[in-house]
Design a protein around this nucleic acid. Structure first.
Length: 206
DNA sequence: CGAATTTGACCTGCGC
DNA sequence: GCGCAGGTCAAATTCG
């Protein structure tokens, strides 16, 4: 994230933002960090981002409730193979999509993986969230003039995916949907945070 | 030359 | 059962 900080500190609801930080960067515990703009989502976004246009679409209830799906979710070959379809309409596995011979064994619906979607006003499709992604597909989406791109985290043990698509109604807005939780540190974030945390430790006498 | 991206084919679920 | 839409695979292509 290159230490990007929004032009003006925003007064967002703290809980969702902490949850968001937790979700995106499970390698750190935001509750232990000072409540500075560091973890504010726009700080993670490209400089072209207009904070006024920043929005998050997510299932806050499930995120913040005790039965936190995110907390329960551990990326694994099993649950990570569930699929997204449209919104949370219980999309089944269009996985194996392809030529894989993994026929479904039962009719039980797979758990919907944790997802979080960002609306960002940006000229760049790909937001630099600190992780490395590999594109594995692109699809034209109905009722949208813009294709949807599919990315996977390149970390060998990580099964997190994300989809990127521009709004049909406002092509300046990019919708980035994350699925799953990273099970490894975010290199860029740690690069940025390490010196800060070190200073904090020094200042606090540790 | 290896890694990343592109792109058409294929699979699955859903609605009719 | 059929067609559509979404998601993924993997060969081909491009890039560094």
């Amino acid at each position: 994230m290159d230490g990007r900080v929004p032009p003006t500190p925003l007064p967002p609801p703290p809980q969702p933002l902490l949850a968001l930080a937790e979700y995106m960067f499970p390698c750190i515990n935001p509750h232990l960090l000072p409540s500075t703009p560091l973890l504010h989502p726009p700080a993670l976004m490209p400089q072209t981002l207009d904070p006024q246009q920043f929005a998050i679409d997510m299932d806050w209830f499930s995120l913040l409730s005790g039965s936190n799906k995110f907390a329960d979710h551990q990326p694994s070959p099993t649950n990570a193979s569930s699929s997204i379809r449209g919104d949370n309409n219980g999309g089944e596995e269009a996985k194996n999509g392809g030529r894989s011979c993994n026929k479904k064994v039962g009719k039980t619906r797979k758990a919907i993986p944790p997802r979080i979607a960002f609306h960002t006003k940006s000229a760049d499709d790909i937001l630099d969230d600190g992780y490395r992604w590999r594109k594995y597909g692109q699809k034209a989406v109905k009722n949208s003039g813009h294709p949807r791109s599919y990315y996977r985290c390149t970390h060998h043990t990580c099964t997190v995916k994300k989809q990127i698509q521009r709004l049909s109604t406002d092509s300046s807005i990019v919708v980035t949907t994350y699925e799953g939780i990273h099970n490894h540190p975010c290199e860029k974030l740690m690069e940025t945070l390490t010196p800060l945390l070190r200073q904090l430790q020094l200042l606090s006498g540790f």
